[in-house]
């Protein structure tokens, strides 16, 4: 390894009352090594290191007594602000639709009206031009890109407060979105909010990152911590180097990794009826209705 960047990662789920000790997840990706303590992270054979460390410092408990950030503030910092900053670079890497999502969208009746909750750059708005989709995302910069896909539309909105009437929509998709919500309650609430918008025959497709992905470059698998920070490395370009002269900037995004059956359980918990579900390349997906 030629260069090692040291990244301090804020622990997820600080506000959860029972978690009084500061937790830190460190790992290596894209040639990046995150180190929080002076303990050496274990490095697996595939070059990916993932380890949870319990901080032994007096930091434990401090955040509990002085203004613990709520999940909204936490997601604002560790999800929304990151996407806003990486929007353009992120978008340039997101153009190929997942096969399951593509076939779901292609199966729709022409003239169907639907939602793309957390539409990002709107890559799924290009799949089927015979339906009308209102995409929404928290990131204004991503919505600007998404709104260019005719005949569809894109607005800035929160997944938990969608500006749509109940029972009005024939379908909804939410791809790689609800795993950014940082409590079990909020993840279920997101499913419920999507269900609310569907009509009696309406179907929704949800897609989330799986915990079980030991063959991926990240190497997570059963038994690993499910709440993780995932780096996004962006070249800053020669014109805007960092203070130390390096030309990469790393952003950390919060993710909840779903274990087998968890997505289906969330859907059932809010009264959704499962139609089909499965696993596709490091992700769990589920199709459900009211």
């Amino acid at each position: 390894m030629s260069t090692i960047d040291v990244v301090e990662v804020q622990p997820p789920a600080l506000w959860e009352a029972k978690r009084t000790k500061q937790r830190t997840v460190v790992w290596q990706e894209f040639g990046l090594l995150g180190i929080f303590t002076d303990q050496k992270p274990k490095i697996k054979q595939d070059g990916i290191c993932s380890q949870q460390l319990l901080s032994t410092t007096e930091k434990s408990g401090v955040m509990d007594s002085v203004g613990v950030p709520g999940p909204e503030e936490y997601e604002e910092q560790h999800v929304h602000e990151v996407y806003e900053q990486i929007a353009s670079h992120f978008s340039s890497t997101r153009y190929k639709p997942w096969p399951i999502v593509e076939s779901f969208l292609q199966s729709l009746v022409p003239g169907a009206i639907g939602l793309d909750v957390g539409c990002g750059n709107g890559k799924y708005l290009t799949v089927n031009r015979e339906v009308f989709i209102v995409g929404s995302d928290r990131s204004t910069n991503l919505v600007k890109i998404a709104s260019q896909h005719q005949p569809h539309a894109a607005i800035v909105a929160d997944t938990l407060s969608l500006p749509h009437q109940a029972g009005r929509f024939d379908f909804a998709i939410s791809i790689a979105v609800v795993h950014h919500l940082s409590t079990p309650e909020r993840r279920k609430e997101a499913v419920q909010e999507i269900l609310r918008c569907l009509n009696a025959e309406g179907k929704a497709l949800l897609y989330v990152w799986a915990l079980e992905q030991k063959t991926s470059r990240r190497g997570w698998d059963e038994g690993h911590e499910q709440d993780v920070m995932v780096p996004w490395v962006m070249k800053t370009g020669k014109k805007n180097p960092n203070e130390d002269g390096s030309m990469e900037k790393t952003f950390q995004r919060y993710y909840h990794l779903y274990r087998s059956g968890e997505l289906e359980a969330d859907i059932a918990a809010v009264g959704g009826k499962l139609i089909d579900s499965g696993y596709e390349k490091d992700n769990w997906w589920a199709i459900f209705q009211r």
Binding site: I113, F132, V134, S147, P151, A153, I155, A157, D158, S161, L162, P163, H164, Q165, A166, R168, F169
Partner: peptide, 24 residues
């Protein structure tokens, strides 16, 4: 934002969504 979109939007406030006054 095209006007077609407006036909599928209402107020984002929870207590408004069930009222007829919030749409359009």
């Amino acid at each position: 934002m095209k006007l077609l979109t407006l036909n599928f939007l209402t107020c984002a406030v929870k207590s408004c969504k069930s009222t007829s006054a919030s749409f359009p």
